[in-house]
């Protein structure tokens, strides 16, 4: 059974080191928002500490990826041992595909990796990438989608675990991605339900309680409200594997038993209420199963939200500006 090191907020594995987390951070899926909800001791946000070794971000820039990109990633994992970094590793985070698991499996005899990711509604993800991507400047949204300048089915590709996650996606790739969601990943979040995800992550990733980041937020992608139906239809059609994968992820997420527990519901509601510096406002509707009534629900959520604010203030952990800026990246 994994032991727990309270000061670090994470479990220890059989080798006595912290159980390393591998964060498959898919571009424009809200990974920064999830990371802000994790204990700073793990993410390196604690002052003066950034000990996660760099791995190449495979899925950046335009034009998809190639075999060379994956080879670079494989090479990079080798340096983990040569530099001795695997021993104290807390978290690997990057825009690398789950293919990485194949490369890290060779360390399985001494480290137990836990993989997690964030999925996002494919239309929102495409819009976020389109709004931010430098490679599509001057190209209309629909043209960018049609031409592949905005990557299609990125989530399916990255989670398939395929050694060749490029080229045309396939039903097999989708099936593999779905299976990985169920079996390979220790945990996954949905960007649209980031508060619930952060609360779940604490338990699923074996993290002890630590202050949540009170800037935790994921803004809507630019242009979503004005998106013409035709463009939405086009994005969904061009990303049909991701649409299918995301629907499956929603079903799995809804099936988490914690979601029906009052502790979980109030914690997620409090996290939502405590965000930012504005006055605490309880916006989460009272669960149907809550018997004590609206006043007691608001009192419960407000009390916990005030605790979260105070924990945050008293721990004095600040975000790095880069992470705040990267919230929608």
């Amino acid at each position: 059974m994994a032991r727990r090191r309270a000061d670090e907020g994470m479990e220890l594995d059989g080798a006595g080191g912290p159980v390393p987390l591998v964060f498959v951070d898919m571009p424009y899926c809200g990974g920064a928002a999830l990371e802000l909800g994790l204990p700073p001791s793990i993410t390196g946000r604690r002052k003066g500490r950034d000990d996660a070794p760099p791995l190449p971000a495979v899925f950046v820039g335009g034009g998809g990826i190639s075999e060379a990109d994956l080879e670079e990633l494989r090479e990079a994992t080798r340096t983990l041992t040569t530099k001795g970094q695997i021993k104290g590793l807390r978290m690997l985070r990057g825009s690398f595909p789950l293919t990485l698991a194949n490369y890290l499996d060779r360390f399985a005899w001494k480290r137990t990796f836990r993989y997690f990711t964030v999925l996002r509604d494919p239309v929102d993800r495409v819009l976020a990438e389109y709004a931010a991507g430098p490679q599509i400047e001057g190209i209309g949204l629909e043209d960018a989608v049609r031409s592949g300048a905005v990557r299609d089915n990125l989530q399916t590709r990255m989670l398939s675990g395929s050694l060749e996650p490029f080229g045309a996606p396939s039903d097999d790739m989708l099936a593999d991605a779905k299976r990985n969601l169920r079996e390979r990943l220790t945990f996954f979040a949905l960007a649209e339900r980031i508060e619930e995800a952060v609360v779940l992550a604490r338990d699923r990733l074996g993290l002890t309680a630590a202050a949540y980041h009170n800037e935790l937020t994921l803004p809507a992608p630019p242009g979503r409200d004005e998106l013409p139906p035709g463009a939405r239809k086009l994005i969904r059609r061009r990303n049909r594997y991701d649409v299918d994968l995301y629907a499956h992820a929603q079903e799995l997420f809804d099936a988490h038993p914690e979601l029906s527990q009052l502790e979980f519901q109030s914690e997620a509601a409090a996290l939502r209420a405590s965000r930012g510096k504005r006055k605490i406002a309880v916006t989460t509707p009272m669960p149907e199963s809550f018997e004590a009534g609206q006043e007691a629900w608001e009192m419960l959520v407000r009390a916990r939200a005030e605790c979260l604010r105070l924990e945050w203030e008293l721990e004095g952990v600040g975000p790095t500006p880069a992470l705040v800026e990267a919230v929608d990246a």
């Binding site: 009052l262 502790e263 109030s266 809550f290 018997e291 004590a292 007691a296 009390a303 605790c307 105070l310």
Partner: peptide, 26 residues
């Protein structure tokens, strides 16, 4: 006047007690 069950009451009181502890720390 509390219309909920004991579990709800205890959770509410526990959060408020934790808030008192944090306020004292502050």
């Amino acid at each position: 006047m509390f219309e909920g069950n004991e579990h709800e009451w205890h959770l509410l009181v526990r959060h408020r007690a934790e808030l008192l502890r944090l306020e004292a720390k502050q």
